[in-house]
Structures are given as C-alpha cells and as structure tokens.
Simulated assay, not measured.
Amino acid sequence: MSAQASPDVAAFPGLREAEYPDLPPGQLNAATHGLAPARTIAALRRALDAWAAGRPDTAGYEDSVAAARASFARITGTPLSQVALAGTVAGAVGLVAAALPAGAEVVTFQDDFSSLVHPFAARTDLRLRLVRLQDVADAVRPGTALVAVSAAQSADGRVADLPAIRAAAEAHGARVLLDATQSVGWLPIDAMSYDYVVCHGYKWLVSPHGACFLTVRPGAEPTLSPVFTGWYGADDPWDACYGPVPHLAPGARRFDARPAYLAYVGAAASLALVEELGVQAIHDHDVALADRLRDGFTSLGFSPVPGPSAIVAVPGVPAALTDRLQAAGAAFSSRAGNLRLAPHFYNTPSDVDHVLNAAAS
C-alpha cells in the first residue's frame, strides 16, 4: 500500500537537515523517548569534554539550569518563580501526596500512569477513588480534596477533558494535579490553570532524563511542605549549604530538587528549540501526522483510538505486523495491548508512509 500525499501536513523547513541529519525513517516513538537535536548533543559533548579535562563548568551548569527553567516557564505560561525543579514525576507527585491530610479524597483515572497514581495509593490513610477517564470530572464532589490526572494518556493517547475537570474542581473546592509529561511540548498547556503541574522533559521536550519540572500556582505553595527541600531550595543556595536553610526561595522554587546538571545542560538546548518552533505549530504538525497514521491503519482494517492526539494507539495488531515494522527499522512501542506510535516535530509524512507501507506489506 502506498499512502496518499498529504500536502496539508505542515513542515519545519531545514529542521531535519540542521538538527536531525542522520535520523533514519520511521522513528515515531516520542511517547517513549524524544530524540535529542544536534544542538543538544553538542552541548552535552562540550560539557563532557570539559569534565573529562578536569574543568567541570559549575557556573555554566547553573546558567543551563536557569535557561531551562525559564524556557519551561514560557512554554507553560508560568511565572518563573512558580517553576520548581524535580527529579522524577513520582517524586513530585509524592510531594503533593505527602502533604494531604489523613482521610483526604483523591480522584484519579484508574488506569493512569503509575507514577501519578501510586504515590496516593501508597498512603493507605487517603480515600483514593479510581474512575474511568470520561468520569473524572463527574466524580468530583463536595469533600474531594484533589483531582490527579494526566493531560494525555500514555497507554492510548486520549486527552482528558481538562476544561470539565477544572470546572468541577472549582465548583467543589478541590485542587488539580496535572501530569503533563505526555503533553507539554505538543499540546498547549496553561499550567497556571492548575494547582500543580509535573512534567518530565525526556519525551515531548526532547531532553535528557533527569530534567523534570513542577509548577505550583500562586497561593498553592502553603499546601505543600518543604520537608524534602535541601540547600538548593534556599533563596541563595550557595550561602545555605550548612545547617538549617535560613531563608527559603520565594514561590515554588523552595521545593527545588538538586538538579542533575548534565540533564539540564541538554534541556536548555532542547527547550530553546521547542520555543523557536512554537508549541501551537508543533501541535498542528504532530496531530496532522498522527491523523495520517490513524487513517492509514483504518484503511488496513484496524480501529485506532480516535484523536485528536499526537499519540496513536492501535489495538489488536498481530505480532506479524509488528515484526514487519521492526524489520523496516521503525521505532514504536507496545502499551496496554496497543501498538503505540507518536510522531513529533522532527518527523515528516515520509516517516508515516514508511510505517504504513511496512504494515501493509
């Protein structure tokens, strides 16, 4: 089968040549791990070379941390002071979970990613209500303390009804925690519409593992405790290395985890590229490619999970088809019984066609 041309799929002229010159066809797996651009690899190599030569650039590392934090703030519409550094999604969610009073009710999607769900399940003194994704908003009721949900689902790409969830939470006085790891970078997210947003950058922000962020809406800081804060959460970290921290940083920065420097060296370069391209443009590009994939698999007799989403999930794909994709050098994943494909800004219609032609052969 030859996929039809799709001139309406927007491209980023010169991007592939400048940032991904050696990318083989069919690499549609951003939902597992985004692919670092050339500028990010170059920044990491410079940092590693300096380290190997005995000249680790601490000041340069700090500049990269500041640049990555600022980029993430702009991408998510967040005041700079409200972006904290995190190590993992589970760690950031655990900060929220640990601060809830005993008996607090938490509503979440029953099959959401474990890093979002388990920190609440681990607290056996909380009332955890697990519901279907389409029922999250309706499940919020008087007495609900927190709604926790992923903006886009890892397993099948479904996008939560975020306006309905926000409205239900506001109506009942509940707070909202959003896991945006599978969305920030392709789906426009206004982080200040939620009390807490956590995002690890190694997927759609094409950054190294370890560059993770937590936003806290102004006024929500008192709901969290800086019990996990070390010297890096001080107003002046380098003057607060010993003894109790005398003055915590303002806003969400008081919850900073000590950053993994090399991860943020890479993140600063990668997030700069995301800003240059623009999240709305990336969204339009990614979703158009994803729609092309869904149409192609539908024509092959499958029933992909409907969009709009940059994540394409196709249930019921036989092993022989995935074997053909692997033989063709395609990159994809299998999640919850679905073949999962996830095109990103570095992909083109030819990548989609490569996969569809392999699937049809």
Results as ranks from 00 to 15, higher is better:
residue 243 G to Q: 06
residue 23 L to E: 09
residue 15 L to N: 04
residue 3 A to R: 07
residue 258 R to L: 15
residue 285 H to Q: 13
residue 317 V to Q: 04
residue 199 C to N: 13
residue 7 P to H: 03
residue 7 P to K: 01
residue 12 F to E: 02
residue 124 T to C: 07
residue 167 A to V: 10
residue 168 A to V: 10
residue 92 A to I: 08
residue 274 V to E: 03
residue 242 Y to A: 15
residue 251 G to R: 04
residue 13 P to Q: 03
residue 118 H to S: 13
residue 336 A to V: 04
residue 236 D to A: 13
residue 143 G to F: 04
residue 58 T to C: 02
residue 25 P to R: 07
residue 325 L to H: 04
residue 190 D to R: 14
residue 333 S to H: 05
residue 226 P to T: 12
residue 163 P to L: 02
residue 340 R to M: 13
residue 80 L to E: 14
residue 133 L to H: 00
residue 160 A to C: 11
residue 270 S to N: 09
residue 239 D to H: 10
residue 214 L to H: 03
residue 317 V to I: 11
residue 19 E to T: 11
residue 64 S to K: 06
residue 279 V to G: 08
residue 225 S to K: 09
residue 262 L to G: 04
residue 85 L to A: 06
residue 220 A to S: 15
residue 286 D to P: 01
residue 215 T to F: 03
residue 97 A to P: 12
residue 45 R to K: 15
residue 316 G to I: 08
residue 259 P to K: 02
residue 356 L to H: 07
residue 124 T to P: 02
residue 296 G to F: 00
residue 69 R to H: 06
residue 325 L to S: 12
residue 325 L to F: 02
residue 59 A to G: 15
residue 190 D to G: 08
residue 109 F to L: 11
residue 282 I to N: 04
residue 29 N to V: 12
residue 349 P to R: 02
residue 165 I to N: 05
